[in-house]
Design a protein around this nucleic acid. Structure first.
Length: 441
RNA sequence: CGGGGAGUAGCGCAGCCUGGUAGCGCACCUGUUUUGGGAACAGGGGGUCGGGGGUUCGAAUCCCUCCUCCCCGACCA
């Protein structure tokens, strides 16, 4: 993409309303624009990142055996009445009526709807287990939206739902999601720690929140230090034994403040105790027949009797992750995108547009990097060097190739690694070779 | 929902106390000179001062009311 033809409204000054890094940088880097409290327009750069994160989440869900579908954003109130949630949900649910005065709502979540889908078609235990998901916009009318996309009212969420005959069977799906989440966050460049979460009235220990550590996190967390640096499971057989992987995490202490047990935490070796703040980026949940029972979602078991389906739900806040990743990866100059989610792979800075030699070298680089799949963003605008450097640092692409007449005289360009800040001069051929290795996948 | 703060040009702000033709910086447009870390000079465009009502000869400024946004807390299947 040539910057001169892109839509990238960067801001020089920080909007007064933004107080945390991710919010500031998303506004300044032209990733989004606020429309009202907790509701944002995703501008091209932000949208591109959002879609990359979504793609990684999708790939990992598919690997784990989940099946994608899509449910609507607008739901009928009747469905929610069946589970009693229409009354119970409260003012966080955006309720609307259509032209015929039918009561509708903008979905804050989809348990009721997926249960309805399931009961419409599945009648036998032989069709279990099932694991379905979709990635869809949600709306929760938060009392206090804040921190940009970190706590928006409208947000993009991946929500998966599992259906099993028994709780024991449910654990297999639960573990699939648990492991898939570890892999997902690792690919996104995040160190997410699963922590025991409140299961509400259901009981048991089948609920975990995944949190990334960050100063600006909304929750206070306590955990064993080793959990933070633990390597992801990677490519494993999702139909194999996942329990040992899950155990490797759950055997170490980790809890948010609501679940914190100071006595248990005291048993963690002093030098391994970590108390910090965290951002919740995922939540997995087993809730049994909470929805299937009131909605009459049953299947016939091997013994010929109808039994309610045992369900779980598994959420990842996709739009929140955009902010979460920035919170984890930025410096005073701007964002530092992990390669996997960077909106573009490489930035090309032309320090003297209009100069034949420089233009030609940039065009050549741009073409070759494009073919290579490095997805370059070529700053071909007429701005001065300083403006271009600042802008490129702000939007945080992993690599910058700086091209100017001075270097070209000696046959070199400068390659800057945004993350380390290291720069080195090399020929264009060497640059292509080096970046080609970086983007080989 | 409790407490606090703020709405004046695209962004950041001053002006309000003490009423009298709406300003500054950046951004934007034109021109000239510049050009390897956010250029200089000259000229220029852009405003229902959040909305409504009131007081007054006169309201960005004083009064009433509504709306919106932000921060702290509580809340967060």
């Amino acid at each position: 993409m040539r910057l001169s033809r892109y839509f990238l409204p960067v801001l020089k000054e920080t909007p007064a309303d933004a107080t945390i890094a991710s919010h500031r940088y998303m506004l300044r880097a032209g990733m989004m624009k606020q429309n009202s409290a907790g509701i944002y327009t995703w501008l091209p750069l932000g949208f591109k990142v959002l879609k990359k994160i979504e793609a990684i989440v999708r790939e990992e869900q598919n690997k784990a055996g989940a099946v994608e579908m899509l449910m609507p954003t607008i739901q009928s109130a009747d469905l929610w009445r069946e589970t009693g949630r229409y009354e119970a949900y409260g003012p966080e649910m955006l309720r609307i009526t259509d032209r015929s005065d039918r009561e509708m709502l903008y979905g804050p979540t989809n348990e009721d709807m997926i249960t309805d889908v399931f009961r419409s078609f599945v009648k036998s235990y032989k069709d279990l287990p099932q694991l379905l998901y979709h990635i869809q916009w949600k709306f929760r009318d938060e009392r206090r939206p804040r921190f940009g996309v970190m706590r928006g009212r409208e947000f993009l969420m991946k929500d998966a739902y599992s259906f099993d005959l028994s709780q024991e069977d449910s654990v297999r799906n639960y573990n699939r999601m648990f492991v898939a989440y570890l892999n997902t966050y690792a690919r996104l460049g995040l160190k997410a720690v699963p922590m025991r979460a409140d299961t509400g009235p259901i009981g048991g220990d089948l609920s975990h929140e995944f949190l990334i550590l960050a100063e600006t996190g909304e929750s206070e967390v306590f955990c064993h230090k080793d959990l933070v640096e633990m390597a992801p499971p990677g490519n494993i057989d999702y139909d194999g034994d996942l329990q040992s992987i899950v155990n490797s995490r759950t055997s170490l202490y980790a809890a948010t403040d609501e679940m914190h047990d100071a006595n248990a935490f005291a048993n963690v070796p002093k030098d391994k105790q970590l108390s910090a703040r965290g951002i919740e980026v995922g939540h997995i949940f087993y809730f049994g027949d909470k929805y299937s029972k009131p909605m009459g979602a049953t299947v016939m078991g091997p013994d010929g009797k109808d039994v309610p389906i045992m369900m779980g739900s598994y959420g990842i806040g996709v739009s929140r992750l955009v902010g979460g990743i920035i919170e984890a990866h930025h410096d005073a100059d701007g964002i530092i995108w992990p390669k996997s989610v960077a909106p573009f792979g490489v930035g090309i800075i032309n320090l003297k547009t209009g100069d034949d030699l420089t233009d030609t070298a940039c065009d050549d680089l741009y073409r070759r990097l494009s073919i290579m799949g490095a997805d370059p963003l070529y700053d071909d605008k007429a701005d001065r060097g300083g403006v271009k450097f600042g802008r490129m640092d702000l939007i945080g692409l992993p690599f910058q190739v700086i091209v100017g007449p001075r270097g070209l005289k000696n046959g070199v360009v400068e390659v800057k690694n945004r993350s380390t800040g290291a720069r080195q001069e090399m020929s264009i051929d060497a640059t292509i070779e080096m970046l080609s290795a970086e983007f080989a996948e």
